[in-house]
Design a protein around this nucleic acid. Structure first.
Lengths: 157, 157
DNA sequence: TAGAACCCTGGAGTGCACTCCAAGCAAGCG
DNA sequence: CGCTTGCTTGGAGTGCACTCCAGGGTTCTA
């Protein structure tokens, strides 16, 4: 059996909870997107897409007969994952590491698994941090609201 | 009445949920910390503390008779808030803006209130984003776990 | 009172994640 | 055919948030 990143393609499993709508996908087999279409679909800039490729964060993208990039649905899936990981604050270098593991094939299975689990832990603690911050903000906002009411009743006198 | 940032000092209100222990505070009135003590208490570097001051993110810190910085409990409170805001991803420039509002006094009350409420909204949506990411990670981790079981049972055969 | 450890300043340097540029090829349209 | 728009490349530039340095003064401990 083969453990690759195909599970997110439209055939194998529903792409549950993929943030923004990001419909407008062409059916698999007819999935050839120019870079500007991917820009529209992902919100990234063309610069960034090319840069991702240069640093090894993207696999080598198909090219048209004249050398222009033609992205596939699978590439879009990968970009969606990268987008998710990016907003956890994961450094690009770590994502490149993960991409390398995927390229290297089956025998990196365990390492990928561990990396994902570690990332999951990181996300959980980030959420906890943010909830701590939320508590501080709420306390402060409550203070300002009280002060506001006091000022208002002062004015009313 | 005066709306300043005194509410977090030890006198006025319990400092609920201030992340790490950060005890080791001296009582108000005897609260004079050298920069290296603040480094130990906050985890920031001395460079960063001086830089915060230069860019206006800190009020002007008291100095000893020879010009060395002497931080107060209130300064530590402010740094704790800054730390919280920092890990929401708020840009330093925005925190400087907030610090300016505090320095400008009462008449910036409403603007500060709005800024805090906006920040609260930002934190909430960041948490939501992270939970979306968590769902993606869990799906992926589930996939890897299944693949792992499949591999294991293959080997068992 | 000597030496180590700490603190001061302005300004330069670093690492990250883009972001842009120039110069040139390619594709579609009137 | 000419024009506009889009895509290509390597390399340079940008903005942010630190991070460090040189060269000097200060404070603590033996």
């Amino acid at each position: 059996m083969t453990v690759t990143e195909t599970e997110t393609t439209t055939g194998t499993g529903a792409d549950t909870c993929a943030g923004p709508p990001q419909g407008d996908r062409r059916p698999d087999g007819a999935d050839k997107y120019t870079i500007s279409e991917v820009v529209a679909l992902t919100g990234l800039t063309a610069h960034t897409l090319r840069w991702y490729e240069r640093i090894g964060l993207m696999p080598h993208i198909d090219r048209s007969h004249t050398g222009q990039r033609r992205y596939s649905n699978r590439d879009l899936d990968w970009l969606a994952l990268v987008g998710k990981l990016r907003l956890t604050g994961m450094p690009v270098a770590d994502m490149v590491r993960y991409a390398e593991l995927v390229r290297e094939g089956d025998h990196t299975y365990t390492e990928r698994f561990e990396l994902l689990k570690q990332t999951r832990e990181d996300v959980l603690s980030r959420i906890a941090e943010l909830q701590g911050t939320l508590a501080v903000l709420d306390r402060k906002i409550g203070f300002y609201a009280d002060a506001g009411r006091a000022l208002a009743s002062e004015r009313a006198r």
